[in-house]
Design a protein around this nucleic acid. Structure first.
Lengths: 185, 185
DNA sequence: CACATTCTTGACCGCTTGGTCAAGTCTGTT
DNA sequence: AACAGACTTGACCAAGCGGTCAAGAATGTG
């Protein structure tokens, strides 16, 4: 699965053939179909494990923290670190979102993640720590910033994930910091 | 190209065959290869046109505005509206990012967009309208929020792009609004 | 040793793919 | 009418695909 994930990330899912995977592993084709029903199932398996692992990482990062805003920060930092350590899988997740065959499985996992953040955001709002806006919207905004910064700076440019996380946290907490008159009606 | 884009968005690039495209159009296969060198080139052409169109739309939206922060807001709103009107193409852009064959072409166009925003962000910083942070980082953060909110709320849930844009603008300008002690060292 | 079960092999199959091309039609010009 | 060049057709092709399977190796058990 590790090797397959690397190949999928490198060449794309469709252009990577089963023959290629087993050849790279130095095994016969039969052994592949002994352990997996199909190429599709292999991909779904990779996806599932990845989402599970990411969530576990996030939960571990925030379990000892009580303050909701700090929880968001710690979760974001954990995500950024995880993302840096699993570049391959990140690419696969992006791809999965573009294929109707994989999107549902992906969405299921992401709804869990969104639910986690949303819950924390609600806490934070209840405690008056952050502005009272739609928690779901805020949760996605946080995810969006994190994903984009991870992709561009960590994956593409190889920046230090902790430093990128610093910037992401600051942006998430304060936005552009425009407290002037630019606020819309 | 329009029809092909729709098919690619619906089924994915690889699973959509040239035969399928020309059949759906009611033309022979030869006519496809008369106008395009290859399936790959068709995709790149679609991508190029889309990026060009998006940029034109953004530029038109901000051309009459002087205030940098308002420019960011207007650009974001224009992007959100464009995104809502071109769901297909958005999916293709996401896909292109996952395939090494298309990523470079994509990146080229996106660098232009990032450059545009970065320039405006710099102006805003120079005028003291927003916090003094890495402009490139801020630009990507803005893009990340916009893209994620567009995908989830506008594309997946069919929300009103203007309302989603409201939320995006607020978030971009103020973040979570956490002006408390949660700021990192 | 014999035997059953688990695991592994790679040639093979039916099918689809991106792409070609000889043949033909349409259109405008002389 | 005669011709040229732009355009269109779809049968066709080699290559590659995901997936199968008869055959055999390894391993465990008595």
């Amino acid at each position: 699965m590790e090797y397959a994930a690397a190949r999928f990330a490198e060449k794309g899912y469709h252009p990577t053939s089963v023959a290629e995977i087993v050849q790279g592993l130095g095994v016969g084709k039969g052994v592949f179909y002994w352990y997996f029903d199909s190429k599709e199932q292999l991909f779904l398996e990779i996806l599932r494990e990845a989402q599970q692992d990411l969530r576990r990482t996030q939960q571990q990062a925030i379990v000892d923290e009580d303050d909701p805003v700090r929880k968001i920060e710690l979760g974001l930092r954990a995500s950024m670190r995880w993302s840096a350590e699993h570049r391959d899988v990140n690419k696969l997740i992006e791809f999965a979102a573009t294929e109707d065959r994989f999107a549902p499985a992906l969405r299921k996992g992401q709804e869990v993640a969104v639910g986690d953040i949303t819950r924390i955001v609600k806490e934070a709002i209840a405690e008056g720590e952050i502005r009272d806006s739609d928690p779901l919207m805020l949760a996605h905004a946080i995810l969006g910033v994190t994903a984009q910064l991870a992709r561009v700076f960590v994956h593409e440019q190889g920046a230090n994930p902790d430093e990128v996380a610093d910037a992401a946290v600051t942006f998430v907490l304060e936005g552009l910091g425009a407290c002037g008159d630019a606020r819309h009606g």
